[in-house]
Amino acid sequence: MKYFKNLFYLTGKRLIDILDISGFTILLLLRALYFCKNAFSKRREIFKQMYIAGVKSFIVCSLVAIFIGMILSLQVGIELQRFQQQSLIGDLLITTMTREMGPLMTGIIIIASVGSAMAAEIGTMKVSEEIDALEMMSISPVKFLVMPRLIALAVMVPISTIYVIALGTIGGAIVAYFQLNVPYDIYYNRVVQAIRFKATYVGIFKSFIFGIIIAAISCSQGLKATNGALGVGKATRSTVVASFLMVLIVGYFITSFFYGK
């Protein structure tokens, strides 16, 4: 009986915690969107955050993009080769990359490299009373910290997605040429013919939403951090888990909205 009581207590507590942080994140996002009117005065901080999100994750984005393209090309190409249809590899690759893999892989890279660092940075500021100091100076932490990060990720995730798609396609071309004997010109022509406007704008829109989600979750987890280094670690871990889940869930609903019946 005691075991069930504890189980109910812990489940209820966890549920309340989840509702609390979800509500806090939504309110934080709305407040950050409101403060976007002050974006010009925070342009230096926005560019700094764009540099961190874009340039600093450039190498990891490049490597992941190339290898994702190569893996996709190889896996699908082997199957297509069985039916002598390997020349279609370009169509499949660009469709997969623009519709799903580009935004999703970029989202995952940004969560791991930028979102976690963002949560750790803001969490450390919270536990070392820097956020309290800002409030005492009548400086809104949302305007000062959250809004620039939100704008930076909303801009940089789509840009990184385009880069990941482009590089993934190149990676696919390398495998198509060396392993599947598909000449570059055929691959290139198939890719160009298969690019669809809808797939492109849905992919970019998806990555724009992912950027907003990652920034909002990272900042809210950071701002909720307590208990010193332990709390910062917990905030970082929660950021990665929650952002990853939200990117998958929201990604599905966006796909369903644009492509579902």
Binding site: M125, S128, E129, D132, A133, L134
Partner: peptide, 8 residues
């Protein structure tokens, strides 16, 4: 603040 709480 005791720690100074300077923006790092």
């Amino acid at each position: 603040f005791q720690s100074g709480a300077l923006i790092n």
